[in-house]
Simulated scan of single mutants.
Amino acid sequence: MTLSTQTKGVYAIAPTPFLPDGALDETSVGRVTEFYAEAGVDGITILGIMGEAQKLEPEESLEIVRRVIASAGGLPIVVGVSAPGFAAMRRLAQQAMSEGAAGVMIAPPAAMRTDDQIAGYFSQAVAAVGEDVPFVLQDHPQVTTVQMAPKVVRRIIEENPSCVMLKHEDWPGLEKITALRNWQGEGSMRPISILCGNGALFLDFEMRRGADGAMTGYAFPEMLIDVVRHSAAGDVDAAHDIFDAHLPLLRYEQQPVVGLAIRKHVLQRRGVIAHETLRRPGAGLSSAARAEIDYLLRRVARSDRRAAL
């Protein structure tokens, strides 16, 4: 099963589970995959920024790919292959696809500044991983520091037929979605799937601007699924109602530095992973933060019993 320009729904960004000593928790890798499948996601993305991919050895990355695909029950799996050099990118992409991945995700390196540099980089990346490999263009300037104007995104899409999806994480970025969809509507850009990240902070309005769904990792993927499905059905108020109920916890989880620790803590509380460990370097949670998370979970549970932990 491969990605296409018609891909829609919710692709959960999976965390990488670790044991307390920092070793890979192979049992929890399977458990978290099964959790997302049972929640009803349309796919899973692994080895992304929130998957601590930069802290993994190459063989660990490949082992995660194998275990997730084996546990996913046929769900499409997207593998983040961003790397400082094309050799490492090529190796992981080819191995992931041979294991049965649906596609790969590529973000530009921080050194890219001009439009030509950015567009040229993606052309080289496509040549490295293979022109037959569907890829997701990750636009996440808050982390990469690379600013891609809508016209640059369009150029990359038009110059690389294997680009089938934009992972939209610009912020603020609602107007970028509108610009791309307008170009698509007038025929000056081919159709492409747009799934949105940024912890889903703007998912309610991103769906109204023309996004096809979410590719992010909030600790309650069920809420993301509800928002996307209500939006697709035209029930805007229902989408906003469930989104608004989770917004305080969603916002809290988006704090820089400690955000992943919060997400892993909640997933551990939900029984999804055995430990909330981040591989070093990584921030932990204070007792005050844990108390605040408990408070927010209780508030969310007033509207959504799935948060009653």
Results as ranks from 00 to 15, higher is better:
Ala39Ile: 07
Pro248Glu: 12
Tyr121Leu: 09
Leu278Ala: 06
Phe122Trp: 03
Asp244Tyr: 14
Val143Trp: 09
Gly199Ser: 12
Asp235Asn: 11
Asp241Phe: 06
Leu247Ile: 04
Glu253Arg: 00
Ala102Trp: 00
Gly74Ala: 05
Asp21Trp: 02
Leu92Gln: 07
Gly210Ala: 09
Leu3Phe: 06
Asp204Glu: 14
Asp294Trp: 02
Val143Asp: 14
Asp235Ile: 00
Arg91Phe: 01
Arg154Lys: 13
Gln95Ala: 14
Gly22Tyr: 12
Glu57Tyr: 08
Ser123Asp: 15
Arg208Asn: 02
Arg67Phe: 00
Lys55Leu: 15
Glu59Gln: 11
Ile273Met: 04
Gly284Phe: 02
Thr277His: 07
Glu59Asn: 08
Pro134Ser: 08
Ile242Thr: 14
Gln138Leu: 06
Met1Asp: 00
Ala14Gln: 12
His140Cys: 07
Phe86Tyr: 13
Glu206Arg: 12
Ala14Ile: 06
Val228Ile: 08
Val79Pro: 02
Ala238Gln: 13
Gly100Trp: 03
Leu309Gly: 02
Ala93Gln: 03
Trp183Phe: 04
Thr7Cys: 03
Val272Glu: 03
Arg302Leu: 14
Val10Gln: 03
Arg251Ile: 05
Tyr36Ser: 07
Ile77Phe: 04
Met112Thr: 10
Leu203Met: 09
Arg299Met: 04
Pro134Cys: 10
Asp115Ser: 12
Thr216Asp: 13
Val266Ser: 01
Gly130Glu: 04
Thr33Arg: 10
Thr2Glu: 10
His275Leu: 07
Phe135Gly: 04
Phe243Pro: 02
Pro141Phe: 03
Pro134Phe: 10
Ser286Leu: 10
Gly103Trp: 01
Ile46Thr: 05
Gly234Arg: 03
Leu3Glu: 05
Thr145Asp: 00
Gln54Leu: 06
Ile273Val: 15
Val133Thr: 12
Val257Asn: 10
Arg305His: 08
Thr114Glu: 09
Gly259Ser: 08
Arg298Asp: 14
Ile242Arg: 09
Ala39Met: 07
Pro172Arg: 13
Arg190Gly: 10
Thr45Gln: 15
Glu276Leu: 01
Leu267Ser: 02
Met207Cys: 08
Ser71Ile: 07
Ser4Thr: 15
Leu297Ser: 05
Val227Gly: 04
Ala110His: 05
Arg299Phe: 00
Arg290Val: 13
Arg299Val: 08
Pro150His: 02
Val152Glu: 00
Pro134Gln: 05
Asn182Phe: 10
Phe243Met: 12
Asp226Gln: 11
Val266Ile: 15
Glu57Phe: 11
Asp212Leu: 09
Gly199Ile: 12
Glu292Val: 10
Arg306Cys: 04
Phe18Gln: 07
Ser231Gln: 03
His230Trp: 03
Met89Glu: 05
Val79Thr: 07
Phe202Ile: 04
Met97Asn: 03
Asn182Tyr: 12
